[in-house]
Amino acid sequence: MPTILRAKCIVTGDAGVGKSSICQVFHSDSSHFPKNYTMTVGVELLVKPVNIPDTRDQVELFLYDSAGKDVFSEQVTKFWEHPNLVMVVYDVTNEASFTNCVRWLERVYSVKPDVSLPGVLVANKTDLDQRRVVSPKQGKELALSKGLGYFECSADKVLIQNILGEVPWDVDNLSEKQLELNHQDQIDHGMTNSSTAIL
């Protein structure tokens, strides 16, 4: 029987940056890119199984596509308990959406401070080259300073597998623990598995 690991991923960032687009393109295996903007109200949950390469095992990714409009923020953070991953998205044509990433991260960490939380910063709408105001260098620097992976995309072409490949999984730390605690073998193994799954 294959093992199914489950991981909860918070998707956050300013309104209109393309969070729902990324989630839906991923969820539909690239067949559905929403051209028109529908504001997310609260949190939308999408579940997507991702196969772990070279095994029969799977990670069921629970994407919590969260509203970016401030009026929903209190409502939204209620759904953020026990995250395993975080994805903060900004729009490269919108400077404010970039500076606000720090605030979104702080909100996420305020919900769950005591578990390591790997994450990725996603620079979206790179197809709008002419209007780009946030450079790759700025994005990478912010990601680095926050211990996040960095990924550029435009939602209509994105493959979330690739985004998740940029997540700085704490695999070293895990294998160290594994030596210390061989009885915890499976637990670490699980985490390593879910990371290779999405790499």
Partner: peptide
Amino acid sequence: DETFWATTGLY
């Protein structure tokens, strides 16, 4: 004592 049930993610 040495065998265990492992959870596979989420609470």
